[in-house]
Design a protein around this nucleic acid. Structure first.
Lengths: 341, 341
DNA sequence: CTCTCTTTGATCGTTGGCGTCAGGGCGCAA
DNA sequence: TTGCGCCCTGACGCCAACGATCAAAGAGAG
């Protein structure tokens, strides 16, 4: 037994198996031109020596780190964890590993994204909103020929592989549902303005109103930032209005949950006195009471698929540039017909 | 201008600055014996060439990857994100990077932890519960002299740096508070039995009852797994009993939130008909209604400090082996005196 | 001739060990 | 006091080494 402190090298394995290092290399890289007998001998020797290829050395000569980055802002823990899990599950069994790169704000990294990526020696990067739509970041990546894939982009869908949903359509459907219940005075709590999803969701909302011939006052749109706290403040403003809306369409579930809390503070019953709908179908939507009517966003699936596309790109395999996932309206207890007509 | 696809090497910088590569290396590693004039010249050349040291090459010769791993199970997104943020914030500005290593269950990796760590070429690893208390994992790490630090361990506090809170004490305080309200029939929803925190929290609970001379039936202890779903099932069992408890002490906030939902399904009012308390003070505790009385766990702080200790260890700087953080009872709206005596 | 290997030597980018060189301080003899 | 040799130290440069891959050339077996 060797000193366990010292790791076995490819030379040790080659010696033990009585083959050349080249052969060992071939075995570990699944290359052809190795008989099964030899392959087994090598694997046996490697197992006995507890040999693992040195990623550093391999990376140095092959110019690959097998490290992928995931860039995200941190709106809600549920979202982040789903994002990570989607990526991690796809990476399971692969030799790639995931480095998490949370950023305070996309603006923060806009100019120095390449420095960050190079300093971390990443092979590729997965961009989540709003980085996935940031023109500066995208152009910098393209200029440097840096492999990336995008989660839920809304613009320039042709410049790289991506997985997305149609926020406008989903938002339109949700609005149609609220209209069908009889709501016409609908408050909106917008998400972070630096996230294009926020604009898209508003567009869908306005489209539906227009199609239904319902007029809408811009005063009923309040700015939030996809966080619980921002949702609380925005909901309070909406509910303090003399012409209080009969329904609030929050652009994500965290803000919808905050709206429920704000309504409770005012003694309003949800959904009897006020309907509230969210977006994303994150875990929180089923934990609060009433459970939130929302739109299911396949965050996990999008993250997994974006990772898949990135790996395909890195390995020069074919991949689809853009895939739009369906989204689904999920009706729960937070919405109902308005009590007063 | 060089082709931007090709990264500048230390040789390019040395050539541009008209010094030796060794000098450039010294500058980038903050070593002495370089005059300021030369240092500035090197930095200027490096900036112009957009040079970043190649981590792979550096790691190869120095046997360091500057990669730290964070091992965790995935009980609740809030917990995971706090954990990650604590570690990441400490790493900010350092050359170390964080690799996330979620595991299905600690048992899954118990035997092959070294393989995982070596395959990922990690410099060190941060263990969160329950890995931080797993005897198999700990002994394997020690046998291999692999640097690690632990978050919230409960056993063998002398074998490595760690940051923890006193779960027994915190649980005792919470129980004393429930007793002081007048509750004597208190149901418990336990956490995952593979997490030592679960046992510790039960111990504190039983200690307090014993000290107060209150007898307790083991039937009032239900098994959960720190997840919302498990809490829902456990709470239902407790509430279906003929001698329904007047209070439920859930061992984390997710399960406490589930208990609130279960109570609502039965038409019970919280806290009027049933008091519910949680543990951890995670985000969810303030999002549900009533907001949950809980014990604040400084997860973020513990993660940051454990990261700090690990870095200190890796760089042979002094560090404290064990530090116990205070914990704080946080009283909110989910607890009150029992209505019926 | 093809398939399955081995051998040799170069290569990736960086760092550690060691050598070199210049200059300063110091002791000591004249 | 001056001049000389010596040691020490700071400021570098040169070269091998880290571990794996890869290209090229060759060899034995079928």
């Amino acid at each position: 037994m060797k000193d366990s402190r010292k790791r076995a090298t490819i030379i040790d394995v080659a010696t033990a198996a009585n083959v050349s290092t080249k052969t060992v290399s071939r075995v570990f890289n699944d290359e052809p031109h190795v008989r099964k007998i030899l392959r087994d001998k090598v694997l046996k020797a490697a197992a006995e020596l507890d040999y693992h290829p040195n990623i550093m050395a391999r990376g140095l000569v092959g110019r690959r780190s097998y490290l992928l980055g995931l860039i995200y802002e941190n709106p809600s823990p549920n979202y982040v964890v789903e994002l990570q899990n989607g990526a991690l599950d796809r990476l399971h069994g692969e030799k790639y590993r995931l480095l998490v790169l949370p950023v305070e704000s996309v603006v923060e990294v806009a100019g120095k994204i390449m420095s960050v990526l190079r300093a971390a020696a990443l092979d590729g990067v997965i961009l989540s909103p709003p980085a996935s739509d940031h023109p500066g970041i995208l152009s910098e990546l393209r200029q440097n020929d840096f492999p990336f894939s995008r989660i839920a982009p809304t613009q320039s869908l042709d410049i790289g592989p991506s997985r997305t949903t149609d926020d406008v359509d989903a938002s339109r459907k949700m609005t149609e549902y609220l209209l069908s219940l009889g709501h016409t005075r609908i408050g909106v709590i917008k998400g972070d303005p630096t996230h294009p999803s926020s604009g898209a969701r508003l567009t869908g909302f306005l489209d539906a109103l227009k199609a239904a011939g319902v007029s809408h006052s811009p005063d009923l749109v309040e700015q939030g930032f996809y966080t619980y706290e921002s949702g609380l403040a925005a909901a309070r403003k909406l509910l303090d209005r003399p012409d209080r809306p009969t329904a609030i369409f929050a652009q994500n579930d965290d803000m919808a949950a905050a709206a429920i809390m704000a309504a409770r503070d005012l003694g309003l019953k949800v959904p009897d006195d006020l309907s509230i709908s969210g977006f994303d179908d994150s875990a929180i939507a089923q934990i609060v009471w009433p459970r939130i009517t929302t739109v299911h966003q396949p965050v996990y699936d999008m993250a997994r698929d974006a990772t898949d596309a990135l790996i395909a790109k890195l390995e020069n395999k074919p991949f689809t540039m853009l895939e739009t996932q369906p989204c689904e309206l999920i009706i729960r207890e937070s919405t109902a017909a308005p009590a007063v007509l």
